[in-house]
Design a protein around this nucleic acid. Structure first.
Lengths: 155, 155
DNA sequence: AATCTTATTGAAAATAGTTTTCAATAAATA
DNA sequence: TATTTATTGAAAACTATTTTCAATAAGATT
């Protein structure tokens, strides 16, 4: 649980119940990236009447503050998660849509290689794997597929 | 240059001038991912009157055929590239929007680790780095930024 | 506590990107 | 050449996101 008020103040922003609600929803769902619509539905439970527009505005602000980060999944829609101590990446099943966490991540090593090989200053990245989860593989759904991602190419 | 006609036939699809135009445009722009709108503009130069709808339909079909693949850049829009022998990834500057190719890629090693650690069957992935290109870094644009990606969080 | 300033909000309208519908066209087959 | 049916373009529909704007409320000042 971060100090939301302090982070907001550092930017001249105010602490509101809407912003608290959005953060709480995301913190209660670590490991499960959510879309703006999902976040709105969950936040509106605690704060009836809360608008979707506010969710979008809050997500943008939280991203700028580094409190949350976008997650890139195959559907091409925007998902978000809180930036926790541990850095997560996901594998998404292109058959059932299930999302699993990748336990190993080599991004830091890759970023190091980039750093030493170019003058590009890496600040963030996007990494996700797509394919078939164990269950769907066993069901034999995975046949004659091609590459998938971002709403195109998936079966 | 792939044998488009053969690939299409294997699926009961027909070879049309529109499909040829889309493929040519993408092949002439290897290393430079394009958006549907860009592709339409370029294809319509050779084939005046060609519709944007057809571009969308063709991109979807080519993805299913494994001829092209989506590229995930920070803006969140859909970009595409032909699936060439060499597998590419990109670094996108969140200041000027410039795109550079990553020379090293560790995805295969990562996918191997995933394979041995779970029963997830990886068929594709998304990997991009975001940050500041050498030029923008030198200009001092990179200050007080946070993570970036998919249209949110970028300065 | 009352007042003030201005950041924030919700609703509606606007926009952007993508998909669907449908009648007309054209590719491949007979 | 005739026939079948995949494909096309235009318009309409749709979805996700952003903008506008008047009303509200957070936090500072008194």
């Amino acid at each position: 649980m971060i100090d939301l008020e302090q982070r907001l103040r550092s930017r001249g922003c105010r602490l509101t119940s809407q912003r608290e609600a959005v953060l709480e929803v995301l913190e209660e769902n670590q490991g499960r990236p959510l879309r703006p619509e999902d976040i709105h539905a969950l936040a509106a439970k605690r704060l009836p009447g809360m608008g979707l527009t506010t969710v979008y505005r809050t997500l943008e602000l939280f991203c700028e503050l580094g409190i949350i980060a976008p997650v890139h999944l195959a559907s091409g829609r925007n998902y978000f998660e809180v930036v926790a101590g541990k850095h997560r990446h996901y594998m998404e099943c292109i058959s059932c849509g299930g999302v699993e966490t990748i336990e190993v991540c080599m991004i830091e090593e890759l970023a190091d290689k980039v750093r030493s090989g170019s003058d590009f200053q890496v600040t963030s990245h996007c990494l996700s794997l797509f394919g078939y989860c164990g269950e769907c593989s066993r069901k034999g759904v995975a046949e004659g597929h091609a590459r998938a991602g971002r709403g195109w190419g998936a079966a």
